[in-house]
Simulated assay, not measured.
Amino acid sequence: MLAYTLLIALVAVERVAELVVSQRNLKWSRAQGGVEYGAGHYPVMVVLHTALLAACLFEAAHREFLPALGWPMLALVIAAQGLRWWCIATLGRQWNTRVVVVPDAGRVTGGPYRFIPHPNYVAVVVEGFALPLVHSAWITALAFTVLNAALLWTRISVENTALQTLSDPRPPR
């Protein structure tokens, strides 16, 4: 359980790093005239993602580590982090945890965005079920997956509406 607690702590530290990058980029976006869309669902997203980490620890305290499940799920968690940071690097200053569109910024179509329109949400979905399952927390994995699906339905709709306001895509990086 100690190793799993350390993993959750590392993910929490990674989230703080994301928020630092996000706040810096949000400040830049607003200075460029960026317009935020769908701010109402953002607090729900923060609560859900924070609850995921807490629920992982709570449920895992009552579960055994199953190597046949835990190791592959850890590999997926690591892959999800890699995909998430690839998205952040590809979007550069345009990335933040909110939906903010900078006028005339152009839609980014490079990096993972060459392959799918919302790759960061693939990382979120994978992490949402894999992180709890690293330590057999299947109830947390199921609950987060269902609640996150509802949230992503709203989030992707808002993001697609916001992206329609952008000019032609930027060339791939």
Rank of each mutant, 00 (worst) to 15 (best):
A75Y: 14
A137V: 14
E59N: 00
T109M: 10
L152R: 00
N25W: 02
A54L: 09
A3V: 10
V20P: 06
T154F: 10
G92Y: 13
C56H: 04
V124T: 05
V20F: 09
L69W: 05
I116N: 07
T90V: 00
W86S: 03
N160A: 15
R15S: 08
E36T: 14
N96L: 13
L142I: 12
T161Y: 06
N25E: 04
T145P: 00
A9H: 06
L10D: 03
A61P: 07
Y4L: 07
L52D: 09
A137N: 08
H41D: 02
A55T: 05
V20M: 12
S22K: 01
L53Y: 15
F144D: 07
S22C: 00
F65C: 04
P117I: 10
V124P: 01
P117L: 08
T97C: 11
I88M: 05
T50L: 11
T145V: 05
G106E: 12
F129T: 05
R15E: 06
G33T: 01
L151A: 15
L74Y: 10
V108Q: 07
V126D: 10
P112T: 04
L10G: 12
T90H: 01
Y4C: 13
G128E: 06
N25V: 03
T161R: 12
R173Y: 09
P171V: 06
P72C: 05
F115M: 01
V100P: 01
H135A: 14
H49P: 08
A39F: 11
W138G: 04
A3F: 08
A80R: 07
T161N: 11
T5F: 12
E18C: 11
S167V: 02
V47S: 14
T145W: 07
G33H: 00
G111F: 00
E14R: 08
D168V: 12
A89S: 10
S136W: 06
H41R: 04
V20I: 15
F144R: 10
